[in-house]
Nucleic acid binder design. Structure first.
Length: 275
DNA sequence: ATGGCCCGTAATACGGGA
């Protein structure tokens, strides 16, 4: 089962590319079972549910005009949809979680159905600059995410957290580690929060496998950033302990970044077996 | 030395992204 994430930077603009990419994966023999999308930049009433349904995907979404907005697509229906972090007052649409397979939130045990998979798609705050109000919001949001996720993982042992984290793990994720040292997305404060998520029992799917050097998921539109591979690895897929042994591959797909009018982010996917 | 792109909203600029 292939599970992917992609920050599309406006679903209005990028919808044809998303549909093309899904169709290309399917015709290559490895259809995408689940896709998390970020930065929809559209209100709920503008979400192109019919287009995705036509392509064979169920969808759940949490939209917002102009900014943010997240969605999950899957070839089977979702249960137990959660929008944003419970108890964290937030005008910004940044998180959507849902269950695939039998709804495991009602305490039902066993049964003939396959174990449920809990999918958490997130668009982490950017933070703009250290010390700014937006950075303080980023840290508050990260703490609320960690607290909620600790509980969520107890309820759902088979859990993925994927999306645009807006944080690099370490200098290997940064095209210019010296020039960007302690700047936004690269600061030790942010990285400590990312490690705190791993400490809950999550694993960076990308690093479970050998990867090309200088593997990034985002490149600035300016200064030929993509052509010069001046990028950051800020989009991630984290797997819970129970899912880690099922992973057989994880790759960044740079090809959509070469499209005309591309998103500045590339999609990233993980292959899980035995689900 | 500086900013150089793209998006949406609004308006022929600006905030935000990263």
């Amino acid at each position: 089962m292939k599970i992917a994430t992609w920050n599309v930077n406006s679903l209005t603009v990028r919808l044809p590319q998303v549909l093309d990419w899904l169709a290309a994966q399917a015709s290559a023999g490895a259809p995408v079972e689940v896709l998390a999308l970020q930065e929809l930049k559209l209100s709920d009433d503008k979400f192109p549910a019919a287009a995705f349904e036509q392509a064979g995907y169920h969808a759940v979404w949490h939209g917002q005009k102009t900014y943010n907005g997240v969605a999950l697509l899957a070839r089977s229906p979702f249960n137990a949809v959660q929008r944003n972090l419970p108890g964290f007052e937030d005008e910004q649409a940044r998180l959507i979680a849902a269950t695939l397979g039998a709804d495991d939130t009602q305490g039902s045990e066993g049964g003939a159905s396959a174990p449920a998979l809990r999918v958490v798609g997130a668009y982490f705050p950017n933070g703009q600059a250290l010390g700014s109000d937006k950075f303080a919001y980023k840290l508050r949001w990260l703490e609320a995410l960690r607290a909620w996720l600790a509980d969520e993982m107890r309820r759902h042992p088979r859990l993925l957290l994927l999306g645009d984290f807006n944080i690099t793990f370490d200098d290997a994720d940064v095209w210019d580690p010296e020039g960007l040292r302690e700047s936004i997305h690269c600061s030790s404060v942010e990285r400590a929060q990312l490690q705190a998520l791993l400490a809950l029992g999550l694993h960076d799917a990308h690093r479970l496998f050998a990867q090309p050097p200088k593997s990034y998921t985002w490149w600035d539109y300016r200064q030929l950033g993509f052509q010069k591979n001046r990028g950051l690895r800020i989009d991630h897929i984290l797997l819970s302990d129970a899912l880690r042994p099922l992973a057989t591959a994880c790759q960044i797909d740079r090809s959509p970044r070469k499209n005309p009018q591309p998103s500045d982010h590339a999609p990233l996917w993980v292959q899980l077996q035995g689900l």
